[in-house]
Amino acid sequence: MPPKSERTILLDARAMSRALQRMAVEVAELAHGTADLVLIGIQRRGVELAERIAKMIEKDEGVAVPRGALDITLYRDDLETVGPKPVIGETRLPVDLTGKHAVIVDDVLYTGRTVRAALDELADFGRPKRISLCVLVDRGGRELPIQADVVGKVVKTGPGDRVEVQVEELDGSDQVDLVR
């Protein structure tokens, strides 16, 4: 009989909202305003989070913030070994990235391979002035030398653990769970 899994709530809806508010402020600060800021959410839930952060920044700064979506499936380094092939989501970039400060937004940072794939893909779209990383949860366990510039919550996890993020737009409610 497999050991029973234990589920803890890392962030409930209110906590998540507070974290995102703070992250929005930090991103605006990091980018020194909105002049050349572009938010790029990684499919899937990164896209929703990028949308929310962008709206929050817009409310504060009173200026529109371009945001896009990036699907990194075709840049994964494990395409060889996964099968059947994963579904590819939509990639759409609102502006030419050259000279911009691109902030990648994702829900969970773990091994860093997703971000590596995102960096490779962005390179095929142009040459941003600067790329930063903004994540809701940093769960440690890096396999590549990658770090987030803006983090919602840091949590220590083991290899068998799972961090599950739910967003209202896709899952019906906002919540982050740790499943051991």
Binding site: I42, R45, D78, L79, T81, V82, P84, K85, V163
Partner: peptide, 17 residues
């Protein structure tokens, strides 16, 4: 490519790493 025995790794469709 694709080895089906590792199919589970792809279940969540990106973002879990």
């Amino acid at each position: 490519g694709g080895r089906p025995e590792l199919a589970d790794a792809a279940k969540r469709g990106g973002g879990a790493e």
